[in-house]
């Protein structure tokens, strides 16, 4: 009862039709090379930083670098203790986090839980645009607006000071925190909310005891990303916080961050191969390691958060 195929004879075989599809393979290879470029970039960063950092640590013991409290690489007597730069960075970051985290979370809660759809559809794109404002612009805000204001309130304020930089950095990361918190909170299934409301909880109780805890990993991840961004922030702190490696807790004084130091050296005429030149690689390595660890933490936390709801 079976018949041959109606058209095209059985003679032309499928088996021998396998052509090596040169074009396909070439395209696939090119695409792969583009994808692997990111790995090459990472390796290049590590090699570039390591190549100058290693010789640096042959001149300067790594412990002296990490735990020294004097940073005067450009003046004699030279001293290579990075702690003043780290503490300067920390001063900025802690200040920025203290402002941006509570406000960002509150805004995220407002957008996700309270704001009407119309408000949200206006505010959310604004946040996304604000995230893109260049950091040099925030540096300008700091020196031309925040610092003069601070000097009115606290006359002892230095022209260059950590507080001003800290404030603009907090304003800078705020939209990001708010937007990411909003995303995380909105990802909480509404069944959870309704369950809590059905138990007779008020909106405050539902939000603070059920919804935010349920979205905690997303919220925490946004904090970590914001902090990591504040650590790597360069232009605002270079413009506003000064160039004085200074171990102080007083935010009204001038300090220097790791990033600002790198900019300072690169603006000068430092001969390649000199110890001064190598310091920027050592500092950049430290910066890279710190921000990388924070990002790894953030992504770990986020991954757990995805597993819960997907």
């Amino acid at each position: 009862m079976g018949q041959g195929p109606s058209h095209s004879g059985a003679a032309d075989s499928l088996l021998k039709k396998r052509k090596f599809r040169l074009k396909e393979e070439a395209i696939k290879t090119i695409l792969f090379l583009c994808a692997i470029l990111s790995v090459v970039t990472t390796i290049s960063i590590i090699v570039v930083l390591g190549k100058e950092t290693f010789p640096f640590f042959q001149d300067v013991p790594i412990l002296d670098f990490l735990f020294g409290t004097e940073w005067t690489p450009l003046l004699v007597p030279r001293s290579f203790g990075v702690l003043p730069l780290v503490s300067g960075t920390l001063l900025i970051v802690v200040g920025a986090a203290l402002i941006a985290i509570p406000i960002g979370l509150a805004s995220g809660i407002y957008l996700a839980e309270y704001a009407s759809d119309r408000v949200r559809s206006v505010v959310k794109p604004i946040l996304e645009i604000l995230v893109g404002i260049p950091t040099v612009v925030y540096g300008y805000f700091a020196i031309s607006f925040v610092t003069p204001l601070l000097r009115v309130v606290f006359p002892s304020t230095n022209i260059f000071n950590a507080a001003s930089a800290s404030i603009v950095v907090s304003i800078m990361v705020l939209p990001m925190v708010a937007s990411l918190c909003d995303d995380a909170i909105r990802a909480v299934p509404s069944s959870l909310r309704q369950g809590a409301y059905a138990l007779g909880a008020t909106s405050f109780e539902v939000t603070t005891r059920v919804v935010v805890p349920a979205s905690l990993s997303g919220v925490v991840a946004s904090f970590v990303l914001a902090i990591s961004r504040a650590i790597g922030e360069t232009m605002a702190v270079t413009l506003a916080a000064g160039a004085t490696p200074n171990m102080t807790l007083n935010p009204l004084e001038s300090i220097q961050t790791m990033t600002a130091y790198i900019v300072q050296v690169s603006l000068g005429d430092t001969p390649a191969g000199s110890v001064e030149y190598q310091t920027i690689f050592a500092v950049a390595t430290l910066l890279f390691v710190i921000t990388l660890s924070m990002n790894v933490i953030a992504h770990r936390v986020l991954r757990r958060f995805r597993e819960v709801y997907e």
Partner: peptide, 20 residues
């Protein structure tokens, strides 16, 4: 087997299979 030929043999082109 498609007309006696193995659809999953190493030499078979899956693209050609789907054309037919």
């Amino acid at each position: 087997l498609y007309l006696g030929e193995d659809l999953y043999s190493k030499n078979t082109d899956p693209v050609e299979v789907r054309r037919r």
